[in-house]
Each structure stands twice: as C-alpha cells, then as structure tokens.
Amino acid sequence: MAVAASQRSMLSEQSKMSAASQAERSVLEDEFKWLLKEEVHSVLKQLQDILKEASRRFSMPAAGLESQLKQENFILGSSTMDQVKGVLTLQGDALTQADIHLKMAKSNQVMHFAFRDDKQWKMQQIQDARNHVTQALQLLSSRDESYHFRTGAEVNKLMDAVMLQLTRARNRLTTPATLTLPELASSGLMKMFTPPMPGDVMVNFYTNLSKLCLTVYQLHVLQPNTTKNFKPSGSSVLHNPGAMFELNNTKFEVSHVHKVECVVPWLNDTLVFFTISLQLCQQLKDKISVFSSYWNYRPF
C-alpha cells in the first residue's frame, strides 16, 4: 500500500513538472515570436539610422554637383617639429590639394611642393570604407518591416553579413596599406607635385584611425662599394631610417623620416558609429542565443 501511494505521488509530481515545463516552453516560444517579429526590426531600424549618419559623414555629391562637396583644410606639423609643415585639402575621399614645406636635412634649405592644378589624390581607404557602409545599408534595407524572420539562424546570418561589412569598413580606416619603398617611389603620387619631387624625396598619405597622415622620406644613394651590405626592406606602413631599396639599378637608403598628422573629426565620428553598430549586432545575436534550442523552430 505504501509503495503504491509513493508511486502515485511521484507520478503526480512528474505530471506537475511536465505541466510546468510545457508552460515555460510556451512562454519562451511567445517571447521568441515577439523577438523575431518586433525586436529584430527595431534593431534593424536603429542600425539603418546610425549607418545613414555614418554615410552622410562620407558625403559624396551627385553627378554634376562636385562643387557642392565641402572642402576641408587640415594643418600638418607643429611648432616643435619644423622639418615638415603643410596644409592638406580633403574633399570627400580625395585630397584636392597638398601644400608641403620640407626642410632638407643636408642643406637646411626649405623646399615647397604643391599638387598640380590638374591633379587630385584619391584616398582609397576612405573610398573603400564608404563602400562597405553602403553594402551594410543595402543588406539591412533588404529586410524591411514587412519581412518575417522565421528562425534565429536567419537573423544571425544577416547580422554576421552586416558585421563583416562594418568590420571591413573600420579596418580600412585603421589599417593603412603596407608598401615597399620601390612601390612608393614608382606610385602615381610622386607625379602629383609642382615642382616635381626630387629623386631623393618620397611622400605617402594615408589614414590611421581618425588621423590623416603624411610621411616624408629623404634618401641618399648608396655607393657601389657598400652593396655587399645591401639588404632591401620589405613592405611596411612606415619605413625607418636605414631602410634600403633598389630602383632602376640604383640603390638607395632612407636617411631621414618625418611623419606629421592631423585629426579629421568626421572620421572619428564614423569610427564611433561603427563601434555602436557592431555592439547592437552582437547584442541581438546574444539575445537570439538565449533561444538557441528554438533556432530551427518555426512559430508560424
């Protein structure tokens, strides 16, 4: 008798636990439905608003409206470092003018170089970052408010695609391209200036985080009797004094390196927008993971 009563009690408890489990599952399913139907679209709307602001920072004119694109002047150099001074004019993703004063190390003579009137230098990092923002916005707009997400995996797939574009955009601004010295010496940038850059001077422009950077290299020719110690340098963002390279059968060594930079406020804004957007994407993925057991559950 006692055993039978005990069994009935256990069955009763199991029944209660089963009912509680069903009730909990029902609540979770309702929450998951609400997440897929309402909250996902709310986050997508926030992301679109933020990235539209980022896109405006990269403001590019429509065809025929080039003159309406704002030109910004940035002063390079400082009172404590007068080897290189200059003013750069940035218009969207192009340097439309560069006015550089360089004090030559050997002679202390100050030389002046400026872009030719018919030349502009495209800042590929800015252009690429803008293109990635555009692609992220296209991904988001492909799922308007009428679109019905059926699984958490589908949401995650979209978030991963958006995060990939945002990460690439951020990386383009924060990671300048590495170049060998011969690549830099033979780049189109060396043909931008008037008067022409002398053969013992090279320059490079790039962005690093929110800064616009100018690096100037002064060179000297290596004598033939030093070639036994010749070790050409590889690719780098910034080459140090002592770096060697060969161009047109002449061997050079970097004697002096000068780097000057300035902050571009709107580039800083875009980096903040990228960080906020990536956080929103990750937070939505984290919420989806709470319902991981229902990722393949189709509520409707």
Rank of each mutant, 00 (worst) to 15 (best):
L179M: 10
L164G: 08
P176R: 05
T174R: 15
S141A: 13
E145T: 07
N171Y: 14
L140Q: 01
E183H: 13
L140C: 04
T175N: 11
L184H: 09
N156E: 08
T180A: 05
A177I: 08
V155L: 03
L173M: 07
N131E: 13
L137K: 02
G152W: 02
A169Y: 03
T151Q: 14
S142V: 03
L184A: 08
Y147C: 04
S187K: 12
M159S: 04
T178V: 09
F149Y: 07
A136S: 15
D144C: 10
Q165A: 08
V162K: 02
L139K: 05
R170A: 01
L173G: 00
Q138R: 14
Q165Y: 11
A185W: 06
S142T: 02
L140F: 07
G152F: 01
H148E: 13
Q138M: 15
A169H: 06
L140N: 02
Y147H: 04
G152V: 01
T175A: 09
M159E: 04
T174F: 14
S146T: 11
T134L: 14
A136E: 02
R172E: 10
K157I: 00
Q165C: 11
L140W: 04
T180F: 06
E154W: 14
N171W: 10
V133T: 09
L139Y: 07
P182F: 10
L164W: 09
Q165L: 05
L164N: 08
K157Y: 04
R168A: 13
A169M: 07
N131Y: 12
S142C: 04
R130H: 14
L179I: 02
T178Y: 13
S146Q: 14
M163V: 10
T134R: 11
S187H: 13
L164M: 13
L184E: 02
E183W: 15
E183F: 15
D144S: 10
S146H: 12
K157L: 04
L137W: 02
G152H: 00
M163A: 15
R168G: 07
K157P: 01
S187M: 12
A161N: 07
Q135Y: 14
H148N: 10
T167I: 09
L184S: 08
T134W: 12
S142K: 02
R172F: 14
L173R: 01
Q138E: 15
F149Q: 00
A177T: 11
T167D: 08
A177N: 12
V133E: 03
R172Y: 15
Q165D: 11
H132Q: 07
T178W: 10
E145F: 12
A136N: 05
S141N: 13
L164D: 10
V133Q: 06
Q165R: 11
N171S: 13
R150M: 09
T175F: 07
Q165F: 08
N171C: 09
H148K: 12
S141Q: 14
S142G: 05
N171P: 11
N156G: 07
